[in-house]
Amino acid sequence: MSNHTDAVRARAKQLLESGEVTRVIGHARGTTPYRSRPHFASSPEQTDALIHDVSCGSNLAVYVSKPKERVAVIAKGCDARSLATIIHEGQAERGNVLILGVSCEGKLDEGRLLRKLDFPPRQVKSVREEGDEVVVEGPAGDVRLPRDDVIMVNCTYCRARTPAVSDELIGEPVPPREEADQYPDLGGLDAMSEAGRAEFWRAQFEKCIRCYACRNACPSCFCPECFVDEYHPQWALHGGGQFRGNWMWNVGRAQHLAGRCSACGSCQRGCPVDIPLMLLNRWMERATNQAFDHLAGMSEQQKQLAALFRKSEAKASEHG
């Protein structure tokens, strides 16, 4: 069960009443029962809108940008990984972020959920979790679906179901998924030939409309000017539909997220044309994990990946 709404509300109210934090960043109900939106509570009354259930998938670390006063963030394991990473990269002072960790067993993938239903999305009355099932209340009563069938695919191999870095924890600790280190999601790419992979990505990147939703959703994409927006040099040709420019953007993006991605899946969730961006991110995570023993945001002491390239750090083992 990962409906922590009551606990999250109570703790958020406490924090704001005592003045420990000036704001609590969490989720509120979105436009449908299976959607959530970010919610920023800066007074105790505003905490009533906070929720935390299976629909709260988006990564809230994206809203933490050099806060001047202390804020609390309701952080799933992946949000906490992102927070640890951006704090380390100087985007926030550790003392200004209270990481309110919540244990998590996976969050909904809207597309996967709706494809399992035989009634229109607007007839979904509520969504809740029971044991290992997600229960959708529809026009003809409850529909029970195994959780693994309707959560984000990246959640099914999550290594941070309990936040590795947090100030406090809401909910019982949940062990990491056993599949986390085996990278089953990469099996398809692994099995392909080089030409097959090139063909696969060609088909994917051709769809890209360069809306940069992936960039906007990503907590690690905080550069004031992204390489793709530079005109001199112009790294990636502008405009969607140009394969070469799209290729540069997606490859460059994966390169810049190597060793920094928290595997939250926000980029893929945000993608309007369903490019499986997590495949590239996870591919790079596997590479950095194997070559440098580095996993982003799994400990507070961790160095940045690029720091491990230095001679003096070359063989250092980081995460613990």
Binding site: L189, A198, Q255, G259, A287
Partner: peptide, 12 residues
Amino acid sequence: ALVKALLAAAGI
């Protein structure tokens, strides 16, 4: 090392 990994993923 990262470039090599990413080029492999991209099928180069």
